[in-house]
Design a protein around this nucleic acid. Structure first.
Lengths: 133, 133
DNA sequence: CGGTATCCTTGACGATACTG
DNA sequence: CAGTATCGTCAAGGATACCG
């Protein structure tokens, strides 16, 4: 394997709040339908959830991505974050009314995905079969 | 700006068909709600569309991403691709019945994004205001 | 017209370690 | 418990050029 030496910038952007100023319809959709947002929003719409509960229920998410996604959703006014100053600390997240209006479309999407997951897997096999060989 | 010399692999993966074997619900959702897929699916559900029409109507998409996204949607059985062997060539894409069942959720998502785009922009300003200073 | 090929940058994300 | 900080990887996707 050959390789090249290239220059890389020192700092990455990540999902750092402070970005995404434009806020087009496309950006809103991507924020809301992003890799982890759907799972979080679904949970937070059913009722208040704690950080650790989300970490368990949103399959495969890392602590870091959970934090980042939660912050972004909070920033966009989709989640309300409530801190209880107890020991140990307790933080609850709940969907705002605006976010709750998304519930129907989101469950529609998930339901569809569940119904057709098998069919899609098959379609891929067929496609790959008659193009590869 | 400082920089480091690092080794990079020669070939990228891109959205190259042949990847994504697992096909979980999460993957299906991300495929279908991805950056460009929604716009394409919406157009292709209303009726057959040509490559160049999509290039114009899906705001901001590059020729490359249009091709890649179309191929992936076709592979997953969401689009039917029809080639008319004329001069000049003509290719039409149309949503399959399975994809058409997504229309409701997709327009729901887009409608919501349009309704709340302003509110979200405001929420961001507020959030950034009371956290930054 | 409807694509491919190649090259490059940047941002999404995981791993790991540490903290009030 | 609920995070933050730092580092590294890799895939998404833009730019550009070329093709049947």
């Amino acid at each position: 394997m050959s390789q090249r030496n290239i220059a890389v910038p020192d700092q990455a952007a990540d999902l750092d709040p402070g970005k995404m100023e434009a806020c087009t319809v496309l950006e809103v959709i991507n924020r809301v339908s992003g890799k982890w947002a759907i799972g979080i929003l679904l949970e937070a719409t059913r009722g208040p959830v704690r950080f650790t509960e989300l970490e368990r229920s949103v399959e495969g998410i890392s602590r870091r991505m959970l934090t980042l996604t939660l912050r972004n959703l909070e920033r966009d006014g989709l989640l309300k974050r409530t801190v209880y100053p107890t020991v140990p600390p307790k933080v609850e997240y709940e969907a705002t009314p605006m976010a709750k209006e998304l519930y129907g479309s989101l469950t529609g999407l998930v339901g569809w995905a569940e119904r057709y997951r098998e069919a899609i897997t098959e379609a891929r096999k067929t496609y790959d079969g008659h193009t590869a060989c």
